[in-house]
Simulated assay, not measured.
Amino acid sequence: MQFFKRKSKPQTDAEYIAAYQFSGDLNVLGELYERNMEMVFAVCYKYLRDEEESKDATMEIFEQLINDLKKHQVSNFKSWLHSVARNYCLMQLRSRKIEAGDLEISDEDFVENEPVLHLIDEEINLEGDLQKLENCIGKLDREQKSCIELFYLQEKCYKEIVDKTGFDMNKVKSYIQNGKRNLKICMEKNQ
Rank of each mutant, 00 (worst) to 15 (best):
Gln131Ala: 09
Leu65Pro: 04
Ser75Ala: 15
Glu122Ile: 02
Met91Lys: 15
Asn135Val: 08
Ile161Phe: 03
Met37His: 13
Glu15Gln: 02
Lys9Ser: 06
Phe110Arg: 08
Lys7Ala: 05
Arg94Gln: 14
Leu93Cys: 08
Glu31Met: 09
Leu150Glu: 00
Arg142Glu: 11
Leu153Asn: 08
Lys5Trp: 05
Phe151Trp: 01
Glu38Val: 14
Cys157Glu: 14
Val162Tyr: 02
Arg35Gln: 11
Leu90Ile: 14
Met1Trp: 11
Val40Met: 02
Arg35Ser: 08
Leu133His: 01
Leu183Tyr: 05
Ala42His: 12
Ile185Thr: 11
Gln92Asp: 14
Leu117Pro: 13
Lys171Met: 06
Ile61Ala: 02
Glu123Cys: 10
Glu53Pro: 12
Lys46Arg: 14
His82Pro: 03
Lys5His: 06
Leu133Lys: 02
Glu15Gly: 03
Lys184His: 10
Leu65Phe: 11
Asp56Glu: 14
Cys44Thr: 05
Lys189Gln: 09
Asn113Pro: 08
Tyr175Ser: 05
His82Phe: 13
Gln92Glu: 15
Ile161Glu: 03
Leu29Arg: 04
Asn125Trp: 10
Tyr152Glu: 07
Gln191Asp: 13
Leu65Tyr: 06
Leu117Ser: 15
Gln154Met: 10
Lys180Ser: 05
Lys173Asp: 04
Glu34Leu: 10
Ile185Lys: 08
Ile137Asn: 02
Cys136Ser: 00
Phe4Trp: 08
Glu134Cys: 05
Tyr175Thr: 04
Asn67Glu: 15
Ile124Cys: 04
Ser83His: 08
Leu81Tyr: 01
